[in-house]
């Protein structure tokens, strides 16, 4: 579903992403791991078409983001880091706007999609509240609701469980897991247990380069008996 080849992005004289290549198939949940500033978010921004790569290509479902960005964006659900949303709108109004842009113009189609997204992310109790008055956990869920509103075949989630309490984290993970059967999912995270809990594959990125691309089990097998965070540290040590 997602094919990424040789993505490069340079900001000033810092190479944020340096030749990243990977692919994600339907049914896979790819965990994107790395220290802060390693290039995770920049890579996701290039896949979703927000940032233009300096070199390399990204295709989603066979469509190249550079040649037909709008078609790619139709297939994608994207949760940007820290879940930006229009604070002055209520949850319902905001999701209604997303539904309209996503092509659900008729009142009943729009309502169906908004209700479904609200149900999946358990936002019913705050649906009429303005987003700026919500707690961080709810805001995060609004961003999540916005990303899966149109039931996209590909989900790109930048730190989806950031700011959630332990119960909400488990709910969101279960939701991602249940949806991933017929979708391709990329998620970035700092939390190593999350990788163990839901990801079918892990990519560790350090200084803009991929240093590991394997299943969580294979990652563990690199040094038997060691904890995941020890392996993570040894792979990304140069990144400090």
């Amino acid at each position: 579903m997602i094919e990424v080849t040789g993505l490069v992005k340079t900001y000033g004289n810092k190479r944020a992403v340096d030749g990243v290549s990977f692919s994600v198939k339907r049914g896979e949940i790819l965990g994107f791991l790395g220290p802060n500033g390693a290039g995770k978010s920049t890579t996701m921004k290039m896949i979703t078409g927000f940032v233009r790569p300096d070199a390399g290509t990204a295709t989603v479902d066979g469509v190249n983001i550079a040649t037909d960005p709008v078609a790619v964006k139709r297939k994608l659900g994207y949760l940007p880091e820290s879940a930006p949303a229009y604070g002055e709108m209520s949850v319902e109004e905001f999701l209604g706007f997303i539904a309209e842009v996503r092509g659900f113009r008729a009142a009943d189609a729009k309502r169906t999609q908004v209700d479904r997204a609200i149900r999946l992310t358990q936002l019913a109790s705050v649906r009429r509240q303005t987003i700026e008055t919500l707690s961080k956990g709810y805001k995060q869920r609004v961003g999540f609701a916005q990303a899966l509103l149109h039931d996209p075949p590909v989900l790109v989630l930048d730190e989806p469980t950031d700011g959630l309490d332990p119960n909400q984290k488990i709910e969101v993970r279960n939701l991602i897991k249940s949806m991933a059967v017929e979708k391709a999912v990329i998620l970035s995270t700092h939390i190593l247990e999350e990788v163990d809990a839901i990801c079918t594959r892990v990519i560790i990125i350090s200084q803009g380069k991929i240093v590991a691309d394997e299943t969580p089990a294979a990652l563990r097998a690199r040094s038997p008996g060691a904890r995941l965070d020890e392996i993570f540290r040894s792979l990304t040590r140069s990144d400090t």
Partner: peptide
């Protein structure tokens, strides 16, 4: 940051 949301919509 909503500009990122806006420009990743179709």
């Amino acid at each position: 940051g909503t500009v990122e949301l806006l420009f990743t919509l179709p």
